[in-house]
Design a protein around this nucleic acid. Structure first.
Lengths: 143, 143
DNA sequence: ATCTTTTTGATATAGCTTATCAATTTCAAC
DNA sequence: GTTGAAATTGATAAGCTATATCAAAAAGAT
């Protein structure tokens, strides 16, 4: 089985539905994208510069946005840049962050996740991923 | 008791600790900031234009960032803009964000908040604020 | 192979935030 | 209340990221 066959199929399906075309660039970018958990357009631009020195930055942005529309990627605004997350990479953890000592504790809670699904469904959304950060004071810093 | 006395005190404490000064502009901006749940620098610029036509946009950005450092505000990157959240505001809401069209839906869920408190308590934390963002596809972008 | 439609690459443009810097203000010391 | 060092402000330039533009190239159906 070819690498990333399933995602490639998802992309082609999306392209077909919207009268879009399957191009060498889209294939190249998808391949690179799926190898990582998340990436910025700029990072990808540099990564692919070796394989295709003429690949334009605008094409990368356009293609990553296309992946979002196809449900393969998720855009997240991080600081001043946009990070594109690979949706097929699962494993998400949430964080408890101490605002005083910056200590970070990871946690996972199925009940919260279930409620998130409910809220999303109520609003017509299908969740791809989420981000939950709880900011507060840890026991040590409270004293 | 004066309006926002507690937050004003927090700000002055922060200023004192860092050899910064208490200015008319900082007081004006804090007062306006605390009246709302969240705001962008641009919005505040227009709001305050009547009260002080000479107040510069750069000062607003600088001051809102100062509030973040003092723990009064929290910066959140939404689309291309930065939104500054009022940490002291109770009626906190979370966000559903479409990864395709960037549409944002606000929601509030007491059950989730209660579970967050439980998780925090279990880890010895006391929550000050939190950030919950659900990323996915809205009903329109799914078709 | 032909022809229509989409895509690409290069660059210009737009939009938000920060950097710069002379003039002004704050505030502690006298 | 003056004085003076240090911080702040306002106006604007500059920096960055992301999108728009458009002629040339590529895709894909016929």
């Amino acid at each position: 089985m070819a690498k990333h066959a399933k995602e490639m199929e998802t992309l082609k399906e999306h392209l077909g539905k919207h009268q879009l075309k399957f191009t060498r660039q889209r294939e190249l970018i998808l391949d690179a994208f799926l190898k990582q958990e998340h990436i910025t357009a700029e990072e990808m631009y540099h990564q692919l510069a070796k394989k295709d020195p003429h690949l334009g930055l605008a094409t990368i942005y356009r293609t990553l946005n296309l992946f979002c529309e196809a449900g393969l990627a998720q855009a997240r605004h991080f600081g001043t840049q946009t990070q594109y997350d690979n949706v097929s990479h699962k494993g998400h953890h949430d964080h408890l962050i101490c605002t005083s000592c910056q200590k970070i504790v990871e946690f996972e809670n199925c009940d919260i996740e279930r409620l998130q699904e409910e809220v999303a469904a109520k609003n017509g959304f299908v969740i791809q991923t989420h981000r939950l950060e709880l900011y507060g004071l840890c026991s040590r810093c409270r004293h």
